[in-house]
Design a protein around this nucleic acid. Sequence first.
DNA 1: ACTGATATAAACAATT
DNA 2: CAATTGTTTATATCAG
Length: 349
Amino acid sequence: MCPGAGSQMESHTHTLPSLSPIHSPTNLSKALSLSPSLPQPSATAPASLPHSPPSPPQSSPSHLLQSPGGLKSHCLSPSTPSDQDDLTCLNWLHQRNILPLSKMPPLPQFESPPISNLSSSPAKPPYSFSSLIFMAIEDSPDKRLPVRGIYEWIVNNFPYYRTAPSGWRNSVRHNLSLSKSFRRMQRDKSQSIGKGSLWCVCPEYRSGLLEVLKKTHYCHSNNSSLLNNPVLLEAADDGRSAICDTMAISDLDSNNPTLSSNAPCSLIPEHEELVAIQSVELTEEAESEKDPLADSGYIEFHYYQCEQYQYLVLPGNSDLDLETVEILQLDAEAQEAAGSLLDLAGGNH
DNA sequence: ACTGATATAAACAATT
DNA sequence: CAATTGTTTATATCAG
């Protein structure tokens, strides 16, 4: 499929106390198979995605933000069968949480609208080629794909294109070339197999693409009940208590006993004092590798769960105050919703 | 009617 | 040489 694309994941190790990622990347094909709101139902079984190996936590963190009983959000909670099946908690975007350093209101969790049409003939997806390419690239482990990989992702996730006249491939290439949202990067010659370049999403256009995707989804979804959820709106409006509101959000739709048994959020109003920041000892390998995203205006972070604690691992050179962390938390909510959205958009069932 | 975004088709060059 | 990839141009459709 996409030679080389899956083998470039940088892997860093850092010493954490038996941490396991809270959200190891969900098997997208499983998630997709559970997405009832996808636009084109197919009688065929969902094809396996062009990637999916759950990857170990990466990035080169040097701060560990530990929040006993705190910092909890819906998708930052331990995965359980219940929330893995939860369509509103699709986590594959968390595989690499690349968050713009801008404050975005938390997006609602999307409930899956009922399937209205179970026709077996795949209909043309409502998503533009830009959106399809965007989703394909975002769903790749390295956030970059060769043209062929993009084809495959689209075909695997949108059965319509299995049988559609091949002109759509031309459109994909046309779109890649023409759109400013996508950038071509030279392949590493040493490991280059196959022809062509790898394509990635320009960070500056990422939010725009996400917006378009969101709008498309809204237009094709008749369920907006959650949009009026007062807790969500409150969380969007109140940055100060965002973390705790986030927790309230997470508890809203979770029947997970593990979550509900957690100590009540005690982060307001003196949460600054309760959030301990510890340094994490890093291996030399992790320290020596420069974060490629360091100068991009984006930041990569990861959550981990260890017993009752949740850890937010931030890049080594990040100098974040609590407010910024809260913003990141809000962004995590937005990302989570975006992940759900992309997931809803991206598959067959 | 105009404009911008998008889809589609096609031609062509470069690369593998 | 054939297939693939990438670029460019042209045209059509649709929504605002």
